[in-house]
């Protein structure tokens, strides 16, 4: 039982990291960025390229190298996210939403098949594997590297929550999500803040990409597709546009999957998680934390 919970929380923390980017972008420009899962895939490939070009295959990596790798991937994918927004989404800012949505799908395919052209269609073995000892936690076996990765994910989320809720720039982000035009009147450079949101969201996805590569051991150009949908599911479960909702939704989805696999068998895992999405959309479309705003006019 505690093993199921722990596995669920571990996978859930990946989902949460990716769902955060989904949710932040949706919150600020009301766009479902379907290319977001592919940014996660690119993050995994950046880690792959970095490691193979520095010293080749490492059988077992220590936690510090892994963290360094995560940082490199975060910077790269962050800048990639800014570029995507600049090239594909900003010119369509005032277009009908459907146009931007289709562009996002197109961007997703662009990233997937560009990586396929460069690295080929077959999966790549990730040159770094989580190693180190394992320990016993409430009767569940967990490796120290797993714990370290969960720690990194948790740290990133805490820093993000602080940034968004307590700083001047975070306040500007929340203001734009509510009313971009009034924000402009306050002197906020709306495009600049949106670019920053893309940087942060994409960097978090990149971090998750490296973690997933190291955890699952193999990566391929389509790995972002299903996880993108799952992050979307997590964001909806939590209440899309809500920061804590994305974190909670990610962990909830991880747990749901973990229990779904344990009770129904691993092959039913995705059926179970997407069935949950449908249930949420029918019965609580605002998600766990997406409460309706009370407003007096």
């Amino acid at each position: 039982m505690s093993q199921i919970i722990l596995n669920g929380l571990f996978v859930g923390s990946f989902y949460a990291l990716i769902a955060l980017g989904y949710s932040m972008v949706y919150g600020i420009i009301k766009l479902l960025n379907f290319a977001h899962g592919d940014v996660y895939m690119i993050g995994a490939f950046v880690g792959f390229v970095t490691l193979t070009s520095f010293g080749g295959l490492t059988a077992a990596a220590t936690v510090p190298t892994l963290i360094l790798l995560i940082l490199v991937a975060m910077i790269f994918t962050g800048l990639l996210g800014v570029g995507i927004e600049r090239v594909a989404y900003r010119p369509l800012r005032t277009s009908p939403r459907l146009a931007v949505l289709i562009t996002a799908v197109g961007m997703s395919f662009t990233l997937e098949y560009a990586v396929r052209q460069i690295f080929g269609p077959s999966p790549k073995a990730y040159p770094v594997r989580l190693s180190g000892g394992s320990l016993d936690l409430f009767g569940a076996r967990v490796s120290t590297a797993q714990l370290a990765l969960m720690g990194v994910a948790a740290l990133l989320m805490v820093v993000l929550a602080f940034y968004v809720n307590k700083t001047r720039e975070g306040r500007a982000m929340r203001a734009i999500a509510l009313d971009p035009q009034a924000s402009t009147l306050m002197g906020i450079n709306v495009n600049g803040v949106i670019a920053r949101v893309f940087f942060i969201g994409s960097a978090l996805a990149g971090a998750a990409g490296v973690m997933a590569g190291a955890y699952y051991g193999s990566i391929d150009f389509l790995m972002g597709f299903v996880i993108g949908l799952k992050a979307f599911t997590a964001a909806v479960i939590g209440g899309i546009g809500n920061l804590y909702g994305a974190m909670l939704g990610g962990l909830t989805l991880g747990l749901l999957e973990s229990f779904g696999s344990a009770w129904l068998g691993g092959e039913w895992r995705d059926v179970f998680s997407f069935a949950c999405l449908i249930l949420f959309l029918s019965f609580k479309p605002t998600g766990l934390l997406g409460a309706r705003v009370v407003e007096r006019m």
Partner: peptide, 9 residues
């Protein structure tokens, strides 16, 4: 016009 305050802040 319409005040446009940030309603949930």
């Amino acid at each position: 016009e319409g005040r446009r305050i940030f309603s949930t802040m």
